[in-house]
Design a binder for these strands. Structure first.
Lengths: 141, 141
DNA sequence: TGCGATTAAATCGTATGCGATACATATAGC
DNA sequence: GCTATATGTATCGCATACGATTTAATCGCA
């Protein structure tokens, strides 16, 4: 049995993710951020000063992806990277003033995405929860 | 207003897509395929001999991604790439015997994914349609 | 205390994605 | 028929993703 692309749930997720990033692109270009960088900053706006590992657990990325990404954010002056005093294996990521300032400039983005989605907030919330449930099943949780 | 990661529909899609690809990984490793390569072959199993552009419209990728991907599939002996006689701008992608043979070796994959999803076929189908609707809205269709 | 096992980041190699551009062929309008 | 435009691929540069390995620091336990 071979399913065609439109029948595959995996392709629905794959293409919807790309469509979503396409919506974010012009909004994030204004802030000079890429989409994964925006996710990392979202985690830091919620809780500042986190280790690379802690950030990775939230955005589901490992240090092989995060380290270069965080170095680019550091070069842009958005975060600082400092070795932890207690445990020198860990690197703490901290927002700079410029990094905190980006939160305000990004505040309008969720409403833009909601509008582009063409769905009500209720429908979108319900869909989000279903997708999250599927993800957790796939992860074997 | 700033949403936290777990509240964001975009992050649900993003992380679910990664989780899905993680499920496919060991299944596709057996076939020596990457996930996007598998999507392209799925389109070719449905309809052989398609141009780069036609494949791109189905998998939602442009030639900048497809050309190197198709060259790798050609190197593996899975497809052939030949200029069209009528219109030399176009390149026809055709399955080889080895490429067609992969369809049988991939036939068990949908059932594996269904099982890992932890959802019924009905629920999964309904979810797929909702995600597809969201995607089409985001694309501005 | 000392040393093997574990942990946290970083590094390396390969394969996407994608914006921007280049190149070749085909088409349209005169 | 000739040229301007349009179309289909390919190329280039940059930023993810991620498996595998490396390096440095900490921990566990005899």
């Amino acid at each position: 049995m071979t399913l065609a692309l439109p029948d595959m749930i995996c392709f629905a997720l794959y293409s919807a993710t790309h469509a979503m990033q396409h919506v974010y692109k012009p909004l994030l270009d204004d802030l000079g951020l890429t989409y994964p960088q925006y996710l990392v900053l979202t985690a830091l706006w919620e809780q500042d000063k986190q280790t690379v590992g802690a950030l990775g657990r939230q955005v589901q990325l490992d240090s092989n992806t995060l380290t270069p990404l965080l170095k680019r954010l550091e070069e842009r002056g958005v975060v600082t990277r400092t070795r932890d005093d207690r445990d020198e294996r860990q690197v703490n990521i901290t927002l700079t003033d410029a990094g905190r300032a980006l939160q305000g400039r990004a505040a309008h983005i969720p409403a833009c995405v909601l509008e582009k989605s063409g769905l009500s907030l209720e429908d979108l919330t319900r869909l989000r929860d279903q997708i999250t449930t599927l993800r957790d099943h796939l992860r074997g949780a």
